[in-house]
């Protein structure tokens, strides 16, 4: 079930992002779309649950464009600039009560791994709470944390860290 979710989400991410990820599709760290995913990539053959997705199908499958909520250093409250992203998903979950989402909190690599695991959990919980406030049901959403263990951006500078301080909203198929 978990693997299926990861595969489906990875397939979705593959279809929705602007470049072809080199990570294996089953890696959960590819779950969730890449940031500002305004372009849709050419369809890629993946071993996921949704093979050979074409761009139009992605639009039909999920109208949401942004799956990540970004955070400031040390912060876990959702910034005003990020609220519209959460609202989009809250509306989607409200209209699709059978959908199940996972919110995965992440941090940059600096500081204590254990503290970062807790900080990631707070970032996931914060997004979950806001989703529920905006109309989603508590039972639809699971909040989990990967701390600093699954960085999306591999670099060691502020540009990379800013990408990694985020919560990803991902959907089970």
């Amino acid at each position: 079930m978990k693997i299926q979710l990861a595969l489906a989400v990875a397939a979705l991410a593959l279809a929705a992002c602007s470049s072809t990820p080199t990570q294996p599709a089953a890696e959960i760290k590819e779950a969730g779309a890449n940031p500002p995913a305004t372009q849709v990539a050419p369809p890629a053959a993946t071993p996921g649950a949704i093979p050979n997705v074409n761009p139009a199908a992605v639009e039909t499958f999920n109208p949401l464009k942004e799956f990540s909520v970004y955070f400031e250093v040390d912060k876990y409250d959702v910034a005003d600039t990020q609220i519209s992203v959460v609202r989009g998903h809250a509306n989607y979950l409200q209209k699709n009560p059978s959908k199940r989402a996972s919110v995965q909190g992440n941090t940059d690599e600096r500081g204590s791994r254990e503290y970062n695991l807790s900080l990631g959990q707070k970032r996931a919980e914060g997004v979950k709470k806001l989703l529920v406030t905006m109309g989603a049901k508590d039972a639809q959403i699971e909040a989990v944390s990967f701390g600093e263990e699954k960085p999306k951006a591999p670099g060691h500078d502020e540009a990379a860290w800013a990408q990694n301080r985020r919560s990803d909203i991902t959907y089970a198929p």
Binding site: E114, L117, S118, Q121, K122, E125, A143, S145
Partner: peptide
């Protein structure tokens, strides 16, 4: 140990 049974750690 640290647990998140109540949401936060």
């Amino acid at each position: 140990i640290a647990l998140t049974l109540s949401g936060g750690t």
